[in-house]
Design a protein around this nucleic acid. Structure first.
Lengths: 193, 193
DNA sequence: CAATTATGTATCGAGTCGATACTAAAGGAA
DNA sequence: TTCCTTTAGTATCGACTCGATACATAATTG
């Protein structure tokens, strides 16, 4: 493998520098298709979030930004025809967000997908190391900041699998039914089991 | 360990999402001490770069940005008294960059240092995995983009160790003498051995 | 010596993003 | 019910980002 020839990360300081460089590349990738980095982040989030989590507030928590900033990004996306907003019938303060067809057809042009291509050139041991290392680092950092993990139902303490029959689950927190499809998306209310 | 409880990265797509979230945190950290993300990135780079690499051009290559953007960031840093510019006597188009005392005393306030604190809560296996995984990913991605690796002399094909005596090395490319201290900084001209 | 290439700056426009202030709806307590 | 507090989101400001384009100057190449 050529891949480990360039960088010799011997200590945490080197790892920190690599994290910075990685972040830079992601930001740079965010200028694809005439969008901005924050706009791509919002689209990616909405594509992965379950229906309870497709709101400006949840996106704000995910991004760690302020409400005002997220509001502006969402307005830009709405102007561009990439998201639709609708009122939440249960809570009229709240706004539901939905990707449009245009947004769905734009997702394959996400430049950060190039990282998946890069991973394909790595061997299985390196890929496994990446998953373990990133997972541990993110968990530690997000926990230290008091942020939300945004995980899947499968590892959530509120998940009650099959409580309404096969493939029909329940969220114990929101008291809402969950389909198999719901359970494969990330959730703003996620809490580790 | 709590750290691996939150995220279960099963595949490359999950790893990609983690990379995105990591990048977001780094960007957010970049608003410390009244500076902006791009300004912190420039300061961190200049603190790590050897004397051949402390130029606007090298910083542009490192950041993967355009010359104009980097020029503006550097002007903002100069106005803030964090960098000094000086003419390169050998090439009068080129500008040498130097951190001021104020910048050096600001470096400990870099919020991305919190990642080092997060790493300290990880066990040795996780840390090792992080280094290996990040290294492999960055190498692969940067190679795919045709970017420069910005490594250390030790792993550079131009490095001629001790050619001028003990602790006195030589860069075969630039034909310049290198001290031990020079060799511990990253270089824009780095090429893997 | 002319053409080309390289280094860096000037300017523009849409967007970012923290800060602050604001509106409106929900929820709780007396 | 009527306050009061909390929550969800928007409006506006100012400094900065960042790609794009155009430009000036210096080095290099033919």
């Amino acid at each position: 493998m050529v891949s480990t020839q360039y960088f010799f990360a011997m200590n945490d300081s080197d790892a920190l520098a690599m994290i910075g460089r990685l972040a830079r590349i992601v930001t740079h990738d965010g200028h694809a298709a005439g969008l901005k980095p924050a706009q791509w982040e919002a689209l990616r989030y909405l594509a992965r979030a379950n229906r309870f989590s497709r709101t400006p507030g949840a996106l704000t928590a995910y991004l760690g930004a302020t409400k005002g900033t997220v509001s502006q990004t969402l307005m830009a996306l709405e102007r561009a025809g990439l998201i639709r907003k609708s009122a939440d019938p249960a809570d009229r303060r709240s706004v539901r967000l939905e990707l449009t067809e245009a947004a769905l057809s734009l997702l394959p042009r996400d430049e950060t997908l190039r990282f998946e291509a890069a991973m394909e050139t790595m061997n299985e041991e390196e890929r496994r190391a990446l998953r373990i290392g990133l997972s541990a680092l993110l968990s530690a950092r997000i926990a230290a900041d008091g942020g939300r993990p945004f995980g899947l139902c499968r590892e959530c303490r509120h998940f009650r699998e099959g409580e309404r029959g096969p493939g029909k689950h329940l969220c114990g927190l929101l008291k809402e039914p969950l389909s198999d499809e719901d359970a494969t998306h990330i959730c703003v209310e996620h809490e580790a089991a």
